[in-house]
Simulated assay, not measured.
Amino acid sequence: MANAYFQFKQFRINQDRTAMKVCTDSCVLGAWAEVKDAKQILDIGTGTGLLSLMVAQRSHAQITAVEIDAAAAAQAEENFAESPWKNRIVLAQKSLQQFGQENQQQFDVIICNPPFFQASLKSPDTARTIAKHTQELPFEDLVHFVKQFLTPEGIFYLLLPPAEAEVFRNLAFKEKLFPARELQLFTQPDGKHLRTIYAYSFWEKPTQKQSLIIRNPDQAYTADFATLLKDYYLIF
Rank of each mutant, 00 (worst) to 15 (best):
W85E: 07
D190P: 00
F236P: 03
K36T: 14
E67R: 04
F99E: 08
V90P: 00
M1I: 10
L42H: 06
L183D: 00
L137R: 12
E78N: 12
T64W: 12
M20L: 12
L50V: 02
K230W: 00
Q135W: 00
R169V: 00
F80V: 15
S201G: 15
Q188T: 06
L42R: 07
P179T: 08
D218L: 11
A127E: 13
K176A: 08
P161W: 01
D125I: 10
V22T: 08
A73S: 14
V143F: 07
L158D: 04
C27A: 12
D125S: 10
K230A: 11
V143D: 06
D218W: 10
F145G: 08
Y198I: 10
I89Y: 09
Q106I: 05
T48R: 10
F202G: 11
G154A: 08
Q93V: 07
T24R: 13
V28Q: 06
S123H: 14
W203S: 14
E136L: 13
H193L: 15
C23S: 15
L160A: 04
L50W: 06
K205Q: 15
M54I: 05
Q210W: 04
A65D: 11
H133L: 08
Q208Y: 12
Y232P: 12
L121C: 00
T134G: 05
Q118F: 08
G191N: 02
L194N: 09
Y233P: 00
T134M: 06
Q7F: 04
D16C: 04
H193E: 08
K209R: 15
F8G: 00
F107Q: 07
I63K: 02
S123W: 07
S59H: 09
A180R: 10
F6D: 08
Q101N: 10
E78V: 12
Q10V: 00
G191K: 04
P115F: 03
S95R: 01
D218V: 08
A33V: 11
Q15A: 09
Q148P: 03
E82K: 13
E77T: 13
Q101I: 00
L29T: 10
F6S: 09
Q184M: 10
A33G: 05
K94M: 15
P152S: 10
Q104C: 03
S26H: 12
F139T: 01
Q148D: 12
R17I: 00
R88F: 04
T64Q: 05
F116T: 01
K192T: 08
A131K: 09
F99N: 09
C112L: 09
N3T: 11
T126H: 11
I89V: 12
L183V: 04
V146R: 07
V167L: 11
A127C: 04
P115R: 08
